[in-house]
């Protein structure tokens, strides 16, 4: 599987973050897709996933361990009742991890 070595530029990429927040899933601009290839292509260790707790209704945030057979680790008690909100929340977490800054979009 491919990986990205792109480095996030918090100023130049801000417009793409805005684009993602408006529409997290679907057709993306090339610039947003480049950002997503970095975020979504992170290694399995610590990678964010959603754990379904009520089918089609509720999901919890979790992280993979990257170690075969080791249980998935829930992240606090962060719950989502729709998948778009979950996508935005994880994007914010990754933005901060890569830039050191909170994503200043409401």
């Amino acid at each position: 599987m491919t990986r990205s070595i792109y480095k996030v530029d918090p100023e130049q990429d801000f417009a793409f973050a805005v684009e993602f927040m408006e529409k997290p899933v679907g057709h993306h601009s090339a610039g947003l897709q480049r950002l997503l290839n970095l975020f979504r292509g992170e290694p399995l260790e610590g990678k964010y996933v959603l754990v379904c707790v009520k089918p089609h209704r509720e999901w919890r945030l979790a992280r993979l361990t990257g170690v075969r057979g080791k249980p998935v680790e829930l992240v606090g008690d962060i719950r989502f009742t729709d998948l778009e909100t979950a996508e935005r929340a994880v994007f914010r977490l990754r933005w901060k991890e890569h830039t050191g800054q909170d994503l200043a979009i409401q």
């Binding site: 290839n37 399995l44 379904c52």
Partner: peptide, 23 residues
């Protein structure tokens, strides 16, 4: 596919959702 190898999130362009069989 949701937990090992493959890096499914990059492939799918959406967050991986794990269900009871995956866990």
């Amino acid at each position: 596919l949701g937990t090992d190898g493959g890096n499914g999130e990059l492939l799918n362009n959406i967050l991986n959702v794990l269900n009871p069989p995956d866990l």
